[in-house]
């Protein structure tokens, strides 16, 4: 519906990422990006979606900036903080050892990223090849493994982790999902999307399978790999129930667990601090997303291989 008319710039951006010498930086001109009417429609749509997606969250963010003398709720409460302050954020750091929590979360994230990216790429690639016996069975196994209601397997999982001696360790948090079926399927879909004729002609050109994997498939799946990366990051970062069951010691808690402290106290809590905690846990993911988002949209057409 909103597919753009290809313009000169499209090709320009596509080339930008290749090894080809960068064209000299040109002066910014709106008309490089499309016809005025189309641009207006696009931005209106973008703003509309922006209101829907971020609007509901904005109020919470603003709450975290309010000072203690302001009402958080009620008719006296204003949308914008009257005396914006970072006090709530300081309190989060005072009340719980945020740095330790973040460090622990990062360890789980690092372990997960490594195993997920490596193994889901490998498995996804093989599953995209129909040329071996058992491919259907493995596919079915992976699909099925996503369908078990977590609560119903949780206790058995915990018993396995205990038998491995991993209770109260970050490895125990990481292990049961060290390669997620969902990521394997994402990679499989990415590899399947590589047109067959390209592979055929690469074969005719004499490229062996490893070469085709390395120089054709891998570059064209970069986008999906970054999707896997961000998904993995979030899953490891946000998980609550499983770490809660595995971890015990204060020094091992992950950020989500640690921040839960702020809001479940039966002795009252400060809404501003709870919101500040949420913002703190959201920021690293958002930063990562901002950095990686340019990679999502990378495939055959703009990766290292171009045609």
């Amino acid at each position: 519906m909103t597919t753009s008319t290809p313009t000169a710039t499209d090709t320009a951006t596509a080339t930008e990422t290749t090894a080809a010498p960068r064209p000299a930086r040109r002066r910014f001109r709106w008309r490089d990006y499309g016809r005025p009417r189309e641009l207006v429609v696009r931005y209106l749509l973008l703003l509309f979606v922006l209101a829907i997606t971020v609007g509901p969250l904005l109020w919470q963010f603003l709450t975290s900036l309010k000072s203690t003398t302001e009402d958080v709720f009620g008719t006296n409460a204003t949308l914008l903080p009257q005396h914006p302050t970072l006090r709530a954020y300081e309190q989060v750091f005072d009340q719980v050892p945020v740095a330790t929590y973040i460090w622990n979360s990062l360890i789980v994230v690092a372990l997960s990223l490594t195993s997920q990216l490596l193994f889901s790429t490998m498995a996804g690639y093989m599953l995209s090849k129909p040329a071996w016996r058992g491919v259907k069975g493995v596919w079915l196994l992976l699909i099925a493994s996503m369908m078990f209601p977590f609560e119903s397997i949780m206790v058995s999982l915990f018993l396995s982790v205990r038998d491995l001696g991993l209770v109260d360790s970050l490895a125990g948090v990481w292990l049961p999902g060290f390669v997620g079926a969902i990521n394997v399927l994402v990679m499989r879909a990415a590899f399947l999307a590589v047109p067959r004729e390209i592979e055929d002609s690469a074969m005719l050109d004499g490229a062996g399978e490893w070469q085709r994997f390395r120089y054709l498939y891998l570059p064209s799946a970069l986008g999906s790999m970054s999707v896997v990366a961000i998904n993995t990051f979030i899953a490891a970062w946000d998980d609550f129930l499983w770490p809660l069951i595995v971890l015990r010691s204060e020094e091992n808690l992950t950020l989500t667990l640690g921040l839960a402290r702020l809001q479940t106290s039966s002795f009252g809590y400060d809404q501003r601090v709870v919101m500040a905690g949420s913002v703190i846990s959201l920021v690293p993911v958002l930063v990562l997303f901002v950095i990686t988002q340019r990679w999502f949209y990378k495939g055959v057409s703009s990766g290292a291989v171009k045609f």
Partner: peptide
């Protein structure tokens, strides 16, 4: 000393 951080999932744990 272990301090369970969450009330809601206390029983599952």
């Amino acid at each position: 000393w272990i301090d369970d951080p969450g009330d809601a999932k206390f029983s599952e744990r």
